[in-house]
Computed example of a mutant assay.
Amino acid sequence: MEQLLVVEDEDRLGRFIARALRGQGYDVDVARTGPEGLACALARQYDLLLLDLMLPGMGGADVLQELLRHRPEQRVLVLSASPDVDVRMKVVELGAVDFLAKPFAVAELAARVRTRLRIEPVAAGPAAGAADNWLEVGALRLDLRRHVLVLVDRTIPLSQREFLLLAHLMQRAGEVCSREELLADVWGYTFDPGGNVVDVHVRRLRSKLEVQRIETVRNVGYCLLAS
């Protein structure tokens, strides 16, 4: 049974979400403050965390950032009543796997949860020359179990989004990946949400590599050099 954590300060809404998800067959815990939610998420391994942004004690964005610093593989679905596109882009850039605006229908919430639980970490592909739990392209070695990059004698931690993005580029090494393709396969978007979320994460990846390995293909996307 999948384990979920709902971090929601509004008591009635938190209980409503938990009851609805338990009815779908999930094991659900509820936390009502930012510090409590962070402590619960670090103390137990959850398959998905549903996180409100407006929390007492510690804002949801801060909880998200701190949690992913310790557990970059943690999947987080953000719930928020904010209509601001910048807010949505910020949490996605921080590493959230999805954003659901309040108010929402139970059916939509259940569908989003099912979708995010169904998406597994990227598996190794023959195009990247991977074996077992590794993807390898040139000097880059990506550990698919620990979500870290091994570069020569350095082990480099990655956020969940950085890991998924690099894995996609490595599987398509030597080929151009469009921004639309990356938004769909790495972020799960079937539309362009606006902003420069892909470019921001590519810059972060580049900063962690010793030399330039990700080329920009103007007006198209990016290409990871095969050697």
Score class of each variant (00 low, 15 high):
residue 118 R to E: 10
residue 55 L to K: 00
residue 53 L to G: 10
residue 133 N to K: 08
residue 36 E to C: 06
residue 81 A to S: 13
residue 77 L to N: 08
residue 69 R to S: 13
residue 94 L to R: 02
residue 114 R to T: 14
residue 75 R to A: 15
residue 27 D to W: 15
residue 97 V to E: 00
residue 100 L to K: 05
residue 123 A to R: 10
residue 111 A to Y: 11
residue 134 W to E: 08
residue 39 A to L: 09
residue 56 P to R: 08
residue 87 V to T: 08
residue 92 V to D: 00
residue 117 L to W: 05
residue 26 Y to P: 15
residue 123 A to P: 03
residue 94 L to M: 09
residue 54 M to K: 14
residue 89 M to D: 12
residue 43 A to T: 07
residue 98 D to C: 08
residue 64 L to N: 03
residue 137 V to L: 01
residue 130 A to S: 11
residue 57 G to L: 01
residue 62 D to K: 04
residue 48 L to M: 10
residue 41 A to M: 05
residue 33 T to Q: 04
residue 131 A to Y: 13
residue 47 D to Q: 10
residue 126 P to D: 07
residue 120 E to Y: 10
residue 125 G to R: 08
residue 93 E to L: 11
residue 45 Q to R: 14
residue 78 V to W: 00
residue 89 M to F: 13
residue 123 A to S: 11
residue 122 V to Q: 02
residue 25 G to I: 05
residue 61 A to G: 10
residue 50 L to S: 13
residue 87 V to A: 06
residue 84 D to V: 14
residue 64 L to R: 03
residue 26 Y to R: 14
residue 136 E to Y: 12
residue 118 R to C: 13
residue 29 D to F: 09
residue 76 V to G: 06
residue 67 L to Y: 07
residue 48 L to V: 13
residue 31 A to Q: 05
residue 61 A to M: 13
residue 94 L to E: 06
residue 95 G to S: 07
residue 122 V to S: 01
residue 104 F to V: 04
residue 31 A to E: 05
residue 105 A to H: 11
residue 93 E to D: 12
residue 117 L to Y: 02
residue 122 V to I: 02
residue 129 G to D: 08
residue 115 T to K: 11
residue 28 V to N: 04
residue 91 V to I: 11
residue 48 L to Y: 05
residue 29 D to Q: 09
residue 126 P to K: 02
residue 120 E to I: 04
